[in-house]
Design a protein around this nucleic acid. Structure first.
Lengths: 185, 185
DNA sequence: TGAAAAATGTATCGAGTCGAAACAAATATT
DNA sequence: AATATTTGTTTCGACTCGATACATTTTTCA
């Protein structure tokens, strides 16, 4: 029964990661979920840097996320900016402090230590396996992908210029490496 | 930078699993950590079924775990039994209800759905990869293994009889499949 | 075009998590 | 025999999280 084995591994990995994340954040007065929100904001594109997108990504209600963001703002780790076109929408940006802190804390030592003890080939295998599992979870449960624009079906490319056919805007070569809440394969 | 990729995958997997576990438990009024404690108790051996062992496994303080167990006992999902030799120690056992509930909830549908969408070969690769990562994390950070007796260096075997040289007691063939807080490779 | 519906974000509340500290009881150490 | 250590519980306070209610803005559509 391989499924049960995989479940047990995922559960154990989750437990160890969670404990470590708590420890890592503790020294800077940050909760696990706050670190995860910051991390997401460092990866997402400019159409996905809103409270609602964070809520979707973290699987929490917008009310819960609103509180998390309020704390992060009060700690000067992120800033809020009104959207030009839609007055309901707020964009979130990491501050210099926020970026500095993330660079310091992520990836956490627990995983760095683990990877250092593995061969390059092992690391490659593990990376591939994780990609497969996450894909299978997303596909098998009809979840949002939050993939990078580069791999999205709305993305079209002409030489070195990229274009998103959903928001109908050009994308830079930096843009296409970022994750998007509207991503479709 | 493969380590960062692996970190990102582990973090995402953790987020998805956590949300799912909350959802799974919610319908039965159980918190994620309560399900994890129950699950541990269904896997551990008779030397590892104490509050302290649960605390070590979950990476929490004994005070926190004490509260978790109190809730589970009040829900009649586990029972407490005094140790015969050491009056400080309490052994925890799943009740029939507890076992029934676990069988119903674990493995959670999210992962079953994912595994169903994968080839047998893929599942095998994923299982191997998880085993490697968990081993690397445990080795690289000097953590306790919580492996099964079968693979422990204290375990000796004569034909079909097993013996633990640490607690100096014979083990059944069921015993050696269970995880132990004293496990050493 | 104007009213209803939907979307985004915030504030508040209550149940629950979690670690720290203090405590009681039993066992180990010396 | 006195002291230290281990196991487990209780209490406290800071924090998480979903539910609900609310304000504002945008979208829908009759």
């Amino acid at each position: 029964m391989v499924t049960k084995n995989i479940y047990d591994y995922v559960e154990r990995l989750t437990e160890l990661f969670r404990v470590d994340l708590r420890q890592v954040g503790f020294e800077h007065g940050l909760q696990p979920v706050q670190l995860e929100a910051l991390h997401y904001l460092s990866l997402c594109n400019r159409f996905s840097d809103t409270p609602m997108a964070v809520a979707e990504y973290l699987g929490q209600t917008k009310g819960t996320v609103s509180q998390t963001l309020k704390v992060l703002e009060s700690k000067r780790l992120l800033s809020k900016h009104a959207d030009v076109n839609d007055k309901r929408v707020i964009h979130l940006a990491l501050t210099t402090n926020g970026k500095k802190l993330l660079a310091e804390l992520i990836p956490a030592p627990m995983l760095t230590n683990a990877c250092n003890g593995m061969t390059e080939k092992s690391r490659q295998q593990v990376e591939t396996a994780f990609e497969q599992v996450l894909n299978a979870i997303i596909e098998g449960n009809g979840m949002k992908r939050f993939g990078v624009c580069k791999s999205c079906r709305y993305n079209s490319r002409d030489d070195d210029t990229y274009y998103c056919n959903l928001v109908e805007q050009p994308l830079s070569s930096d843009d296409v490496e970022r994750i998007c809440r509207e991503h479709e394969s």
